[in-house]
Design a protein around this nucleic acid. Sequence first.
DNA 1: TTATGATTTGCATCCGTTGCAAAATTGCAT
DNA 2: ATGCAATTTTGCAACGGATGCAAATCATAA
Lengths: 197, 197
Amino acid sequence: MTGLRERKKVRTRRALIEAALRLFTEKGYEETTLAEIAAAADVSTRTFFSYFGSKEDVIFHDGGIRLEAILGMVGRRRPGESIGDLLLRVSEASLNWTTEEDLALDLSLERVDLIMSVPALQAKALHLLFDSQLRLAKALHEAYQDEIDLLEAATIVGSLVGAAKLTVMAAMDRGDSLEEVWKAARTAATSTISRLT
Amino acid sequence: MTGLRERKKVRTRRALIEAALRLFTEKGYEETTLAEIAAAADVSTRTFFSYFGSKEDVIFHDGGIRLEAILGMVGRRRPGESIGDLLLRVSEASLNWTTEEDLALDLSLERVDLIMSVPALQAKALHLLFDSQLRLAKALHEAYQDEIDLLEAATIVGSLVGAAKLTVMAAMDRGDSLEEVWKAARTAATSTISRLT
DNA sequence: TTATGATTTGCATCCGTTGCAAAATTGCAT
DNA sequence: ATGCAATTTTGCAACGGATGCAAATCATAA
């Protein structure tokens, strides 16, 4: 099951993530070169690209997993549960999310800071989030086929995610602490959901 | 006032925009090289960068103007006008927007298609829109200082813009015609606003 | 140990982007 | 018109991210 090959791959992957994050926070994102990251992880520059598709991707290595989990929650909604309640549960889960890998590497904080402060990463994050929303809207529509059409689902999801996202950004922009930021996000999500139902 | 220098600049700028858009639609965005655009506009590659900051920017040449106009509407809100009414007016204006330059060059349709279909442009658009939202939230907060705080303003703006944006995207994704798309956006905006107030 | 398949590596290359200094162009005063 | 100053354009070199490809290396199972 877990041969040398696979263990090595996991190790290299982690080494790349750690090296990248360390270098990014130490000397800045733009200032860090892929060659440096690869060197720090002890692989060739070329090899970086067989682990990640781009320089940004090394920061968003877990995006897919989170989305799948959320879509799963929607797909397996509790029978009889209202849209609002489901969205509440989904919001809560999303806001609490931290990856295993993150915990193991203790990286979540630096990641948030980085993403917020580096334009290229911000852009990537927004784009990923956007794609996720579209899929979430579709999932919501399918889960409540008889209650809302696709466009209504899109309006709801867009409204909810948009509210949370911009509230987070405004709070960070204002210099709030991370706890305050998450609290604001929660408030925004719950108040938006209550208005949507 | 309008010397040769300035007229030439305007002409070059237009030539670049037109050339870029034509080439992008003809042979695709990634497949079109900056050198080709510059050649088609009869300037050197280097000169492209004294008109636009990046390859994407040539598509978003008018972003700033639109935002300023909207912020102006908010700043000069009609005395006594409710937040909802103001937002309604702003939404209407935003959805109807077409630039002079666009009309002159007849480009608005191709631009929408391009932006929707090219990932890099999508990402840029989202990022621009995001920045705009933050500024709009601040403007809204300032215009209604005694009624809503910054975070509430952010929640409202995020919710409204998010709803409109995702609804547009879902409609396009579904293959709706452009008229249907705008109609869906209008519906999403009005229904979201009515729930927010 | 060797055959096999997967992974890594080192090129070579393309493209977007930037800095810089030389050259060309425009505006202006005389 | 002529010469000077300011502005723009241009060519050139360089950097970094990204990709294709073939050679080299490595893990695994027989």
